[in-house]
Write a protein that binds this DNA or RNA. Structure first.
Lengths: 207, 207, 207, 207
DNA sequence: AATTAATCGAGACGGTACGTCTGGTCTTAGA
DNA sequence: TCTAAGACCAGACGTACCGTCTCGATTAATT
């Protein structure tokens, strides 16, 4: 009765029995991963450490995540999912302001910034992780692209706006400062960033 | 009396003997490091590997470099120093064009891009390396700042230009694309980048 | 039924899971250790070398033996256990003859003598090893003490024989010649040794 | 041509030019070696340590002594030379009593025993050292042989006494107990040792 | 109820690279 | 030519994690 089908998707071999996956173990792993991540940064996360803290066997972790990177991405993605704003205020200016403000808020949570930087780093070092990281990045780009499109639809922005480039202008400077650290990130920078952004979007290069 | 002094600098411990440092060993290490770096990327560089390829003892490497990161940064910095253009054509537009064109040229040498990405990654993971990486980044920022200042002196650019931000506009988008890879880097993008850049520099936000 | 227990022996910690220890790996390590020991002597034994020859990972060796000394003692003790005679011919004279003859037989196997000397040496240099070496020595002394006691029981030897000293007379001269090497060891010396020994045991000091 | 000198004799370093060998350095090295030897045992002696304590360069030490073993043997031999008794009381019994008593006196100086054991150990492990150790051992055996011969000459001992074996009886049990440690060495044991010894020498095996 | 099958924990396994250490050699400057 | 200093090669040390692999014990779904 009431088989909720767990995580059953078509194409998967139809289960005929067997112990079902432990949700507790799953959650414990993610929780431990995030804890360690925010404590000692990405470099400090080890599968052994996660296993030890969560009380879940290493083999169980490897059964469900292909790599440390996949695990951290999963953990971080789920935990911070709620943090990604999807503003829809009615004007592009306010939408961008909300979004970018949230972006710069990592400055107030150093460990969150550390985690982000670690994920970006791992994406450079581990080709297997690159893809899943990129898809996470893309999901955030899509949110921004969406609000820009709404702006175009409302006539606030030019119809021939180069979306990809515009989105680059949202994330590029943020990431650059976050990673290089030549200037400390500061939530107050968000305002300047948005201003320049809107300025650029409204006065596109003539050529 | 009879101060021998020789090549003595204040603050340095007075040398009284001892085998002098082997330049060969030093060079061999750097060469091996760059070779491995460009072959298998930063993640593939190991002190053991560098020692093996260079024929220099591990302990000797550790004597002169505190970490893999310091070694690679040193090696990469020295070897590629010659690659960094310091254009001085007479106009900001041409200077920037030259500089940015060289920047995007890494797209033609995938291993060079891989190396760059690896260094950026390590800077995120290893606090000890962060600093030396940042100083290398800064040295490149300084070149760009220099050509911008010459532009201001010649009246090509506004005197109240925010230099830091302007330099961000040179490197930010480049790094973002290099790291995230949502769009493959392409030397042809250099032109568009410079155009937008000049556009932005000449039409700064009003406010 | 119901009792799982399986192969459970009192005193042993109840197994709660985990891959069972590989007997092959264990044996391979001991075998390799003895081989190397008898080839190049104790000084030439290294954990790295044992790992390489046995095909067992270094970490596995360290998991089971705390030091090179513990490993070698274990290996040598087990492997040569079969070589230690426990004669019980019915007379002390014959028992001693058998035992001592086997003792001097190392003279025919130079590598075995080398190994023995190396173990004695290490016992001097490494306090951690001293104890396990001594317990091995003691196990051999016990065999000799046993045959002497049987001799006493049969009335062949005096009841107030100083056992410790008597056993010293069996091993002392042997070890001294083995270690100092002022006279080459020779299996033929066993006879003279036993004769003097019996002579001494039957004509104890009057005092 | 015709460099005789090599291991020159004190006083006349027949110099042909160049800086004269420093007697201070030489002495300092020996002194430091013995100090360390008696502090932490043979195993704790390192050329580096001796160099550090004596203030003499490592290379200088290596110039004059081929190995740690040679150094320690030299140092120990010279320093303890004065300790080796050469009794000549007029009777074998007293001569032996004196000699053996001194032998067991190491029991009162644990570090001296430790040093002795270390030297014996090294002789097992380092073939290069074996020879010089053996010659030191022989010099002590010669002293004992000498007093036994005087005993024979005086008619106290049988003329056909097996000298080598008799000397073994002096040193063998001592070394065995010193090395194996199954019974702690004790100066009081000297008396029993000598008694048994004399007993054995006077009642040799009939055969 | 019995069977079947996938899960779980525990932890041993072969590996790689780490950064440290000691030993013995070599090369310089200065006496 | 010697001493002192110290850089050099060589290679073993013991540690940390890696990702894989048995194990025995659980837990459902299917017979």
């Amino acid at each position: 009765m009431a088989r909720p089908a767990a995580s059953e998707r078509p194409g998967h071999p139809r289960r005929t029995g067997g112990r079902i996956r432990s949700q507790d173990a799953h959650d414990d792993v993610l929780r431990a991963a995030v804890e360690i991540l925010e404590e000692v940064g990405y470099g400090g996360v080890t599968i052994e450490g996660v296993a030890a803290r969560s009380g879940v066997a290493k083999s169980t972790i490897y059964r469900w995540w292909t790599s440390k990177a996949a695990l951290v991405m999963d953990a971080y993605g789920k935990i911070v999912a709620g943090r990604m704003p999807r503003p829809d205020t009615g004007t592009v200016a306010d939408d961008l302001t909300d979004f970018v403000a949230e972006l710069y808020r990592v400055a107030d949570y150093p460990l969150r910034g550390k985690a982000l930087r670690g994920l970006m780093a791992e994406a450079q070092l581990d080709p297997a992780f690159e893809e899943s990281f990129r898809s996470w990045v893309q999901s955030r780009r899509d949110v921004v692209a969406g609000l820009l499109i709404r702006g175009i639809d409302r006539g606030e922005l030019d119809a021939d706006l180069d979306l990809d480039h515009a989105v680059d202008l949202v994330f590029g400077p943020f990431w650059y400062r976050l990673l290089v650290g030549h200037v400390a990130l500061d939530a107050a920078q968000a305002r300047g960033h948005v201003d320049r952004l809107l300025q650029g979007l409204r006065h596109p290069p003539e050529q």
